[in-house]
Design a protein around this nucleic acid. Structure first.
Lengths: 139, 139, 139, 139
DNA sequence: TTTT
DNA sequence: TTTT
C-alpha cells in the first residue's frame, strides 16, 4: 500500500516531454494549502507530480497554472546525479488519477472535459502511470 | 486534502529526540515494497516518517527495525541548510496514525500493544502530529 | 485502518439535530459521480454522511444542497429497527474533515470560510467525529 | 474521487460465483476493529467486500476466514428486491487491490503468494473491478 | 450471520 | 544509508 491523495492548484503550467520510446511524461508542481493557518493563509507545500502516457497528455491539454485538481497516486523516490557529482534524491507523486475540480483560472480557454484516470477504456490503462524501466526519464 | 497511506517495514530503529520545548519527535525510514516486481522482489522505496509527541513515544517504545506498520499521515516538505551553504529540501510523511501489523521481527522483545493514533483520549491529541512552529527541529 | 475519501455534491441541505446530551449531529446524502460513464453522465452513487459536534455545526452553517465537498472519514454500520420489527443496517460515512470546494450553487448566500476539520484548536477535536456511546442518535 | 481503504480480517471464507458471461465475482464480509475500544476489544464493523474477475479468483484461492487483509477500493450502493417486494439497498466496497498481510489463521494450508491487484500485466486489468453492466449479479 |  |  502506497497511496497519496492531494488537492491543490498547479503552481506552473504542466510540462510534457517524451521518453526515447515515445511515452509522454507530464510534470508540474502542485501547491497544497495547509489547513488552519489562518494568520498565514497562503502557507502551502509544493509537491512534484508526475503523470505518464495518456494521463500525461490529458494533463498537458487541460491543465494550466492555477488549475484546481484532486490527485490520487503513489509516492516514489527518484535519484539523479547532481552537478557536483553527488547523488541526490527527490520524492515525487506518480499520479494515477487527476480529477479537475470546480474553479478554473480565468485565462484558461481550454476544453475542460471532466475527469481523467490513467486507467481507461481505450488504449492506455493504469500502467501508464508506471515508471517505464530501462529508459531515461526526460527531466 | 493532503493524505498519505503507506504499508511497509522500518528500515532502522526509530530515533526519538526532543525539541527545546520538550516535544518528542520520532523519525525513521520506512521501506515500502513496490508491487509486482516479481523478478526483483526486493525493490522498495524508502520514505522518511516523522511522528510527534505521544505518537513519537509510542513509536520509540514499540517499533524496531523490521517492524511492519501501516501509516496514515500527510506529506510535508522541510527545508534545511546543506553543509555547502545551499538550501536543500526533503519530503517527509508526518504520521497521524501508526498501526502495528501482523508479523514482527523475531528479535523484538517488545511489548507490542495494539495500535496508536496521534489523537487519543488522554493528554495528546491530533495536534501532536503538527509541526510545532518557531522551534528548531532536532534533526 | 478504516478510511473513506469522497468528492461530490450534497443531494440535499444538511439536517442538524442534537442528542440528549446536546451534541450536534449533521447528516446529508452525498452524490458522487461515477467516472467514465460518458453516455450516462449523471450516474451517481448516493452515500449517507454524518458529522458530529463542531464539524456538524460548520456543515449546517456553510453547506447547502448542491455544495461541492471533499470528505474524509470512516465507514460505519448502524443498526436500527424497521417498522416491521426487523433489524435493518445502514452503512454511513462518519466525516472527520469536510473541505469546501470550488463551485458553489448560485443560490448560496453563505459565508463560505475555508475548510473544516473535526479536530481543531478550540473546543472540539477529532472525537467530535466519534459516535457518542450510550446515547440515542436523533435520526 | 471515491476511495476506501480498510484493514481487517475475513469474517467468513470468500464465496466465488460467476456471472452469466463467465466473470468471476468474489464476496465476503470483512471485520474491521474499531480503534481505542480498550475495554471492549472485540468491537468491529462488518463490511461487504466484492472483487471481480482475476482479483476475485485470487481472493478465492488465497483467502480464508480469519485472513488479515488490506483492501483498497470504492464505495458502491447496490439495490435489490427484498422478498416482500420492496426495494432494499446495500453499500459495498468494490475492491481494486487486496494485499495479504502478516498473520494468517493457523488452519490455512494455502499457498499465500504476495499481493494482488485488479490491474495487472497479464489478461485482467483494473476494469475487472468494475461492475459489468447489463448482467445479473449472482448473489 | 460474523474476524483476531 | 536501508526492511521482509
Amino acid at each position: 500500500m502506497n497511496k497519496v491523495i492531494l488537492a491543490g492548484r498547479l503552481a506552473v503550467d504542466p510540462e510534457v516531454r517524451y521518453t526515447q520510446s515515445g511515452k509522454a511524461v507530464a510534470s508540474f508542481r502542485l501547491a497544497v494549502n495547509r489547513r488552519f493557518s489562518r494568520e498565514e493563509e497562503n502557507t502551502a507545500d509544493f509537491f512534484s507530480i508526475v503523470a505518464w502516457q495518456k494521463l500525461a497528455e490529458i494533463c498537458g491539454n487541460n491543465l494550466v497554472k492555477g488549475s484546481q485538481v484532486l490527485i490520487e497516486g503513489r509516492l516514489q523516490v527518484r535519484s539523479y546525479d547532481a552537478q557536483d557529482g553527488s547523488k541526490r534524491y527527490v520524492t515525487e507523486v506518480i499520479a494515477n488519477e487527476v480529477e479537475f475540480m470546480g474553479s478554473r483560472p480565468a485565462h484558461a480557454g481550454n476544453d475542460y472535459s471532466n475527469s481523467a484516470q490513467s486507467a481507461d477504456n481505450s488504449s492506455a490503462n493504469s500502467f501508464g502511470s508506471e515508471l517505464p524501466p530501462d529508459e531515461e526519464i526526460p527531466f
